[in-house]
Amino acid sequence: MPGFRVVLQSTLLHLALVAAAVLTLFPLLWMVAVSLMSPDEANRFPPPLWPEQPSLAHYRALFARLDIARYAFNSLAVATAVTALSLLFNALAGYAFAKLRFRGRDRLFGGLLAAMVIPSQVAMLPLFLLLKSLGLVNSFGGVVVPGLASIFGIFLIRQYALSIPDSLLDAARIDGAGEFRIFWSLVLPLCRPILVTLAIFTFMGTWNDFMWPLVILTDSQRYTLPVALANLMGERALDMELMMAGAVLTVLPVVALFLALQKYYIEGLVLGGVKE
Rank of each mutant, 00 (worst) to 15 (best):
P119R: 04
G135Q: 02
M124N: 03
L127V: 08
L129W: 03
L100R: 14
M116K: 07
P119C: 07
K99N: 11
L100N: 12
K99W: 10
R101P: 00
L130A: 13
M124L: 14
S133Y: 01
P119A: 10
L136P: 00
K99M: 12
F128V: 06
L129C: 01
L112A: 12
V122E: 06
L136S: 05
F109Y: 11
G111Y: 13
L130P: 04
G104Y: 06
K132Y: 06
L134R: 07
A123V: 15
F109W: 02
V122K: 00
L131E: 00
R105S: 09
K99H: 13
I118L: 15
V117R: 07
L129R: 12
V117G: 04
R107W: 09
A123F: 13
G110A: 13
Q121H: 03
L136Q: 03
G110Q: 11
F109L: 05
S133Q: 10
L125H: 02
A114M: 15
G110L: 12
R105T: 11
L127H: 02
P126V: 10
D106I: 09
L127P: 00
L129T: 02
L125D: 00
L112G: 07
I118K: 08
S120M: 13
M116E: 06
F128M: 10
R101N: 04
R107I: 05
R101D: 00
Q121A: 05
A123K: 06
M124D: 06
G111C: 14
S120G: 13
R103S: 14
M124A: 14
D106C: 10
L134E: 14
G110I: 08
Q121T: 09
F128N: 05
M124I: 15
L134V: 10
L125K: 02
L113P: 05
I118G: 09
F109V: 07
F102L: 07
S120A: 15
M116F: 02
L108T: 12
L131S: 00
V117Q: 07
I118H: 07
K99L: 13
D106A: 15
V117N: 04
R107M: 07
S133N: 08
V117L: 13
L125M: 11
D106Y: 09
K132L: 10
S120E: 15
S133D: 12
M116C: 03
R103Q: 14
G110R: 07
R103Y: 14
L113E: 02
F128C: 08
L108E: 05
L129D: 02
I118T: 11
S133W: 01
R103T: 14
K99V: 07
G104S: 09
A115Q: 12
R107V: 08
L131F: 01
M124Q: 09
M124E: 05
R105G: 07
A123E: 07
V117F: 13
P119L: 07
L113S: 04
K132M: 11
L113F: 03
K99Y: 08
Q121W: 03
F128Q: 05
L100C: 11
G104W: 05
L127T: 15
S120R: 09
P126D: 08
L112M: 15
D106P: 01
K132H: 09
R103W: 15
A115K: 05
M124S: 08
K132N: 15
P126G: 10
L131V: 01
F109I: 06
L112I: 15
I118D: 11
A123Y: 06
M124H: 03
A123C: 10
V122M: 11
V117A: 14
F109T: 04
L131C: 01
L127Q: 14
V117S: 13
L100T: 11
G135I: 03
